[in-house]
Design a protein around this nucleic acid. Structure first.
Lengths: 240, 240
DNA sequence: TGAATAGTGTCTATAAGACAATATCCC
DNA sequence: GGGATATTGTCTTATAGACACTATTCA
């Protein structure tokens, strides 16, 4: 990792070094797991089973273990929702680190927030029913339930990040099933951005990226002409 | 801070809670202080005076104290360069948190990286001369000197962030003196992006933002027609 | 056949690149 | 006056929004 070599002096220093000799904050990872369903952006919340704030809703989080990376901790936190963290294949990205001195009544606890995205079908099986997990709708970038700690602010930052990255990254496709219509893609974008989009230019813009490949299939009978299904091709389709 | 109230149960729990009972990583803040000078982006490096890697170049950093916010820690780290942290008025923004398990030979040390921007004149007085501080040029997003820890990767992320935000934020103006010419602004953008920009559309685009206000003055005698000086008006000019 | 949305083509407005013509200022 | 860059204006090209029209599919 380090671009410089460990010296003999370093070895002596490190042998005597004791991190526990210095006061230091606790470190957690909290995850904002989002999905988009029925025209709403939704955030996975869990009911706290321990104090502080037992019974309150909060983001799933864990204390970071000494031997795990931050992302590994984030996956562990995901397991607190109904998702299987090992089979988790959605979007997972570091969001921001929250370090206000008074943000946690237990003392100084710094939290590295991640945000994660999965299509709603992946959550449906386990999601809403399983007791202490809940998919709360996001209205105007905020959850309507009161959240423990500074988690309401964390959710806000996550929603802003999602909105911001929608235009210049593949982040949107992480919220769709493998095959989807252009309409579904547009409705997703409108749900995230909270405003209507021009249909014509949206189609043109999406198709012009070269990231959409027609599957050849059409959507299920819908009471009108069915739309073509596309899948997302990350690297660059047949004409890049 | 918390959106929920502390309960009697919480009070009892908190009275008995001892953070030190759990193993936890150490936490540092490292700062990527950048400026742009003579057509180069530059990063402030300091020579480490303690092991590990004594004598190697690294980003200025500090261990986070229990009672200080992350940003306060970042300002304290800035003080290790020749800058006066209290008088620091430049750009300061959280960058990313680096938490790879093996990134620091002292053990598990998670680092919250910040990036900071100042115009070169502010660094000139104290900058390059003062012994263990150095302004290293950035070439292709990387510093040419070998850096301690994972600081080379941190610098890369900082440069990418700066490039990315140049187009849609005010970040560029933080690297310019209070009054500047359109040419200076364009050269700055070209330095940061590493590619030439179209002069005509750059002028149009910048003036169209409404963020530039003519000071009424012109640049110093330069051997040819002097350009008008502008200043940056954050909120929105007379026809914002 | 009618309802309803998919998908295509055309026109217009706006922003970016190219280029030409002046306008100034310093030497 | 001559050199050098600033500043303005025009033309061309790419892209987004608006709108009209045709194509399908299901009830």
């Amino acid at each position: 990792m380090a671009a410089t070599e460990i010296t003999a002096e370093d070895r002596a220093f490190l042998a005597a070094y004791d991190p526990a000799a210095y006061p230091r904050p606790s470190l957690t990872v909290d995850v904002v797991l989002m999905t988009a369903d029925r025209g709403r952006l939704r955030v996975a919340l869990i009911e706290r089973s321990e104090p502080p704030f037992r019974g309150a809703w909060s983001l799933p989080g864990v204390f970071v273990a000494l031997s795990e990376s931050l992302e590994a901790a984030a996956r562990r936190a995901l397991a607190k929702t109904a998702l299987d963290p090992d089979r988790f294949s959605g979007w997972l990205e570091q969001l921001y680190t929250f370090g206000a001195v008074e943000r946690d009544p237990r003392g100084r606890v710094v939290s590295v927030a991640y945000f994660a995205l999965v299509p709603p079908e992946r959550l449906a099986a386990a999601g809403e029913g399983s007791g202490a997990v809940r998919l709360a709708p996001v209205v105007d970038g905020a959850v309507e339930v009161a959240l423990a700690f500074d988690h309401a602010a964390v959710v806000q930052v996550a929603v802003e990040r999602l909105r911001g990255k929608l235009g210049y990254t593949d982040v949107g496709f992480a919220l769709l099933p493998p095959a989807f219509t252009l309409r579904a893609l547009q409705e997703l974008h409108e749900t995230i951005l909270g405003r209507p989009l021009n249909k014509d230019s949206f189609r043109r813009r999406m198709l012009a990226t070269g990231l959409l490949v027609p599957t050849g299939d059409r959507e299920e009978p819908v009471g009108h002409r069915p739309a073509a299904l596309y899948r997302f091709e990350p690297v660059g389709g047949r004409d890049g």
